[in-house]
Design a protein around this nucleic acid. Structure first.
Lengths: 140, 140
DNA sequence: GCATTTTTTAGAATCATTCTTATTTTAGAA
DNA sequence: TTCTAAAATAAGAATGATTCTAAAAAATGC
């Protein structure tokens, strides 16, 4: 018997035409509940504690499926590893160069002037800022 | 004897405190003259024709030096490989999902509302859009 | 229950980037 | 010019995230 959170997630997957396997439910739920824009490694490390058979290939496969369905987007904000973000609303991402944490910040993508992109068909908009977060400025 | 373009580039490096070795001059000049936001592979392939001894390690080393000096920035707009861009002014980048080409577009980074980043120290701003370029829309 | 399709798994393969070490080049002093 | 020390370059090995491949397991429909 799934918890309420997990069955809500299962319904979400079903609505998007994705078969709600246990692995997929747990991965999607993990993304929804995480504030940290996890990497594949993060997701795998957290979930394999409770799903010992989990493989990284499944994490990769599932993320691709979720992206395809428009439930998740990938962040290329740092080179080392891609990060994954459940799509909630328009927001930008700030990466702290010292602690590596990724923060969401509100932004209206519509406000960005796209006059220079006449004739281009825009599908995806990413705004990545970086610098120092408040906490890391203190510990200088 | 260096061409006018190359000696201008050499002066630029010198002003930034970078010793203007031939490899560095050529790599910086290649970036300045390229519209394509080249990858390391692109740079290496183009320049090793004329500098047969050139090694990829030198391309990487030089790019890191140029980034450090603030002459170049790295684009993480796609996962496969990083791209390098000489810093000219504020502009965003558009990546065509079909042909892979990267286009610059004018954008005033200052216009982006950063109210959500109170207390953050912003060092770098990247705006990445993607979709279909005009040419690839035609060939649908 | 059985056959077919889908999903998961484990590990091999790929490839951009970094690291290491040796060689070459440069700058400055004598 | 010659010598020495420091800096830059080169070649290839190492790393590690991601993709690929093939086999096992699970789910679906008849």
């Amino acid at each position: 018997m799934l918890s309420k959170e997990l069955s809500t997630t299962a319904n979400l997957l079903t609505r998007k035409g994705i078969r709600p396997s246990y692995q997929r439910i747990r991965i999607m739920a993990y993304l929804n509940q995480s504030e940290r824009h996890p990497t594949v490694e993060d997701i795998f490390a957290a979930l394999s504690l409770e799903i010992p058979s989990l493989s990284k290939a499944t994490v990769y496969n599932t993320l691709h499926t979720l992206i395809e369905a428009g439930l998740v987007r990938v962040l290329n904000i740092e080179h080392d590893a891609q990060r994954y973000d459940p799509i909630l609303e328009n927001h930008g991402h700030f990466r702290c160069e010292r602690c590596g944490q990724i923060f969401n910040f509100d932004i209206d993508m519509g406000q960005i002037n796209t006059a220079g992109l006449q004739g281009f068909q825009i599908e995806k908009k990413d705004v990545y800022f970086s610098g120092l977060c408040p906490e890391c400025q203190k510990n200088n």
